[in-house]
């Protein structure tokens, strides 16, 4: 299921602006990797490069090499939709489709993949909702709109929608930043469970969260506004938070900077 991500010299631009400069790192399968760093350091940009969502923005492009199990996802004749099916994404703000019911939201990706048949969809929906720890809360109102759920439930609905298509990798872009602490804990528990099946990369502003959920942590930073973001340090989470090699990392995690 889960796959290894290898980035080498990944550089991303918004038009003429260089957002990240030459990021190289290897992300192991079935692990949780946290990307931390101050605002504007390019951690989200790097995350969005992994499933080729960066290039959706006008003028945005990526250079360098990014492979998933040795397959270059930026190769010319790679089908970008196949890349995104393999690498799911959960966004900062819960974004269920507002016009769809809970059920339709969960199976939206499956329908895009051409899965038809009520039984198959129902089975997959239950599995995904159970996987997202949401089944018990919504099983009696699957036909109701997804927008009627609380923020935390909506975010778990989005996670269910993402894992329903059984991706190899799940990317999360500050998935808890719009949620209250209890919903945040629910999502963090979920991340620990999902790790058994998926490779997870999570961007977070919350360092306790990075320390709680991740196996490895990558610290990104910028010199000053307008400079591209760089990967400063990448190591076991334990090591980053207790004994970082770089002075900058230490300053950041102890709150002296950023």
């Amino acid at each position: 299921m889960a796959k290894r991500i290898e980035a080498s010299g990944v550089t991303a631009y918004y038009g003429a602006f260089k957002a990240i400069d030459s990021v190289s790192m290897t992300i192991e399968p079935k692990s949780v990797t946290a990307l931390i760093g101050p605002s504007g350091c390019g951690k989200s940009t790097f995350l969005r490069s992994i499933n080729r969502m960066h290039e959706v923005l006008p003028g945005a492009r990526v250079e360098g090499r990014l492979t998933v199990d040795h397959q270059d996802i930026y190769e010319r004749d790679v089908d970008v939709t196949a890349v995104r099916r393999m690498i799911g994404m959960v966004f900062q703000r819960p974004n269920p489709f507002p016009t769809m019911s809970i059920f339709d939201n969960v199976v939206a990706g499956l329908r895009l993949n051409g899965v038809r048949g009520k039984a198959a969809l129902e089975e997959a929906a239950e599995k995904a909702l159970r996987g997202a720890n949401l089944w018990n809360e919504v099983k009696d109102r699957l036909k109701k709109p997804g927008g009627g759920l609380s923020g935390g439930q909506q975010q778990r609905l989005c996670i269910a929608r993402t894992i329903a298509v059984e991706p190899q990798i799940v990317l999360m872009d500050e998935p808890c930043s719009a949620l209250d602490p209890i919903s945040t804990l629910a999502i963090e528990d979920l991340i620990s469970q999902l790790k058994d099946k998926y490779t997870i990369v999570i961007v977070t502003h919350n360092m306790q969260q990075a320390a709680r959920v991740s196996d490895r942590t990558a610290f990104f930073s910028i010199e000053k506004t307008g400079d591209p973001g760089r990967l400063v340090e990448y190591d076991d989470t334990q090591k980053i938070f207790t004994n970082p090699a770089e002075r900058k990392t230490e300053d950041y995690i102890t709150g002296r900077f950023g």
């Binding site: 269920p96 489709f97 507002p98 993402t162 298509v165």
Partner: peptide, 25 residues
């Protein structure tokens, strides 16, 4: 944009994205 990106991130083509997010909205 969040809805359009949700569809794209699920692996929708542009037309599929329009069908799942733009037209219903």
């Amino acid at each position: 944009k969040a809805n359009e990106e949700a569809a794209l991130a699920l692996g929708a083509t542009k037309w599929e994205m329009i069908r799942t997010s733009v037209l219903p909205y």
